[in-house]
């Protein structure tokens, strides 16, 4: 397994996809923090800063690194078949499961690096805003990254399935992009529309009713979108009845995960399902 890991790790760090997406993210982060500072973000409390950081990283990193994870997975196997490197690798005394396991581990480490980089930029942004940082930050940031990593792993595994089904890597890349837009943009918007339609049908719905409805619908109809499930969990990190985030009650990541165990379970479960299917298909497929 270590052999496949070393090779894939070196290869993944050299892919343009990774650095282009990291670059886009960095370019997006900088104006956001600048705008917040310019329009009053300097008064952020520690609680508000952490809530903002966690939700911002979840949304931005979840979307961009999510696309990266899906693309990475979708071209992981078919591109190697096209180049012939997989035939070379698998002609050596290495078991298929060990090879794909090593590859998967390398992808996970690369995604973790991407997530940590994105979090680091986020933390620097919060510091730039002048918000005081509490000691809980490290713990919560780590927890958030682990949760996001789990979601990214699920997307990589989904990509592996695509990679074993679609023979051409360029077709798989296209399919993965379409899937990413459907999963991250189109379907969540349809679900939000359903939420608001139902909310409008009920008499005097409160904001918390709508939030709860959104959570229920996301759990029910977006169980296959890991970033949406992470969004449900991180929505409980901070709570405030005030739309300006004043008097914000910071609950932390541990509370948010405990409070949304079903969503956490869905992420873990779907990850396992995709991984088992992806690995099984790889061990049974013709490498030609």
């Amino acid at each position: 397994m270590l052999w496949g890991f070393q090779l894939e790790f070196k290869q993944s760090l050299r892919t343009k996809k990774l650095w282009v997406i990291m670059g886009i993210m960095a370019l997006l982060y900088i104006p956001v923090f600048y705008i917040i500072k310019r329009f009053g973000g300097q008064d952020l409390t520690a609680e508000a800063a952490m809530t903002f950081l966690i939700q911002f990283v979840t949304g931005t990193a979840g979307f961009f690194i999510g696309i990266l994870a899906l693309l990475m997975g979708a071209t992981a196997i078919n591109s190697e078949i096209e180049k012939g490197t997989l035939r070379v690798a698998m002609s050596k005394p290495i078991k298929r499961l060990a090879y794909i396991g090593g590859k998967f581990l390398a992808h996970s480490v690369v995604l973790l690096i991407a997530l940590l980089l994105s979090t680091l930029i986020g933390v620097l942004g919060v510091v730039y805003l002048g918000a005081p940082l509490s000691g809980q930050l490290v713990e919560d940031v780590l927890l958030l990254n682990m949760l996001l990593l789990l979601a990214m792993i699920q997307l990589v595994a989904l990509g592996y399935i695509l990679s074993t089904v679609i023979k051409s890597s360029s077709s798989a890349l296209g399919a993965a992009l379409v899937l990413a837009f459907v999963m991250f943009l189109i379907v969540p918007n349809i679900v939000s529309y359903m939420v608001y339609k139902e909310a409008m049908d009920s008499p005097n719905p409160s904001m918390s009713d709508i939030e709860q409805l959104q959570k229920d619908y996301t759990t029910k109809y977006l169980f296959y979108v890991p970033t949406s499930q992470v969004g449900v969990i991180t929505s409980d990190v901070g709570a405030s009845s005030d739309p300006d985030m004043e008097n914000l009650e910071y609950n932390g990541m541990t509370y948010a995960i405990r409070h949304n165990l079903v969503n956490f379970g869905i992420i873990v479960g779907m990850t396992l399902v995709y991984l088992i299917v992806g690995f099984y298909r790889f061990t049974r497929m013709d490498l030609r």
Binding site: W3, Q11, K83, T85, R87, V88, S91, K92
Partner: peptide, 28 residues
Amino acid sequence: IGYMPEHATLWEFLTPMQTLDVIGEAFG
């Protein structure tokens, strides 16, 4: 067994020395 495939390339980011080192490692 030693196998040389048809229409294949090796890992493009490696040098020949690194390639043979990686392959040799697979054989222990």
